[in-house]
Design a protein around this nucleic acid. Structure first.
Length: 334
DNA sequence: TAATTATGACGAC
DNA sequence: TCGTCCTAATTAC
């Protein structure tokens, strides 16, 4: 169930734990047996995220493309090396996650989860074996008795080294592509501010929106217009911008759209660095801590239908748009 | 035990 | 606009 931020975090995990290593691929579920066989035994040479899609390259020139869809997830197990920014926002360490302390400071070093499920920037003692599920959020599932673990449920593909495994379940896409096919997929994707926040990328987004009569609430979910935005970020971005979801793309000013793009870049960075879809980051420290703990306190409008708007008190509206639930404030976003 | 739900996307009309 | 695909956790009965 991930939007763009989680795919970037998962890709970091592959970079940390699989890059440069020989990987055994299998399909415990059986449905991806042929694809797994094409990559089995090869060294992973790259791990990239673009919007909601992830691409893993192997030393025979082929790529694994994965899209988690609405409820896909990766389970990492074994002696997992956590990206520092992932470890710092995980589990009990969430307490330390105060505003500003860990935003925008990726890659400070490795950390290994210890047996208590906590971590330290400098791992204490021998690394233990754990299992972490990465979807929209990350959470530790359990400690491992043996490695590799028995596959649980419908595991489409398992990637395995001598110390770490990664199980994929529920993806909407999982396929082997050659470089030309990867290029074809990438060509259809709009800009991802996590990869490119240049003025050119911003202009690509602004121009794409201003060309179309389509409602902005639909355009933000269109991955060829902008990459990585899903149903939560759509609702929250439009509220933050005070834009009516029904406004046609072409009716919006370039200035308003540039601000929208920059806010997406900002929220995405927050999501990538904290692992939470925090869309109310303008809070005081205490409220921020509360919001990081409780999802219900983390958003302006998402899943708040019928509740009073946090700004004006008007009841938040729920309607269908693009076959998805759209939440918005009819007064603030008039 | 069954129904419901989900933070996606595609193809057929 | 609708149906379909993918899976598991949560909620209702």
């Amino acid at each position: 169930m991930p939007e763009g931020h989680s795919v970037h975090r998962i890709t970091r995990q592959f970079t940390r734990n699989f890059l440069g290593r020989t990987v055994a691929l299998s399909s415990p579920q059986g449905r991806f047996a042929a694809g797994a066989a094409q990559l089995d035994g090869h060294v992973m040479t790259a791990a990239r995220a673009v919007g909601k899609q992830m691409f893993l390259e192997f030393d025979n020139g082929l790529w694994l493309r994965v899209h988690l869809g609405m409820y896909g997830a990766w389970d990492f197990a074994g002696e997992i090396i956590m990206d520092a920014t992932i470890a710092a926002s995980n589990g009990r360490m969430g307490q330390t996650n105060q505003r500003g302390t860990d935003l925008g400071s990726p890659g400070e070093g490795d950390a290994v989860l210890d047996s208590a499920g906590e971590n330290s920037m400098h791992s204490i003692g021998a690394p233990r074996r754990t299992r972490v599920r990465m979807a929209e959020q990350e959470k530790e599932i359990d400690q491992l008795e043996t490695f590799p673990p028995e596959p649980v449920g419908q595991v489409r593909v398992r990637l395995l080294t001598d110390t770490v495994s990664a199980d994929l379940r529920g993806p909407t896409a999982c396929e082997v592509l050659d470089p030309a096919q990867v290029d074809a997929v990438l060509a259809r994707l709009g800009p991802d501010p996590q990869l490119d926040d240049s003025p050119e990328a911003e202009a690509r987004f602004v121009d794409a929106v201003r060309k179309k009569p389509t409602r902005i609430g639909l355009l933000l979910m269109d991955q060829s217009v902008v990459s990585g935005i899903g149903n939560v970020y759509r609702a929250e971005l439009l509220f933050r911008a005070k834009i009516n979801p029904h406004a046609p793309g072409k009716s919006l000013s370039a200035e308003a759209l540039r601000a929208l793009w920059r806010d997406w870049a900002h929220l995405l960075a927050v999501g990538v660095n904290t692992g939470q879809m925090m869309t109310m980051d303008d809070l005081g420290a205490d409220d921020y801590r509360l919001a990081m703990k409780n999802r219900a306190d983390r958003h302006w409008v998402y899943k708040r239908e019928g509740l009073p708007c946090r700004v004006c008190g008007t009841h938040i509206t729920l309607e269908d748009m693009g076959a998805r639930k759209l939440y918005w404030c009819p007064r603030c976003q008039a």
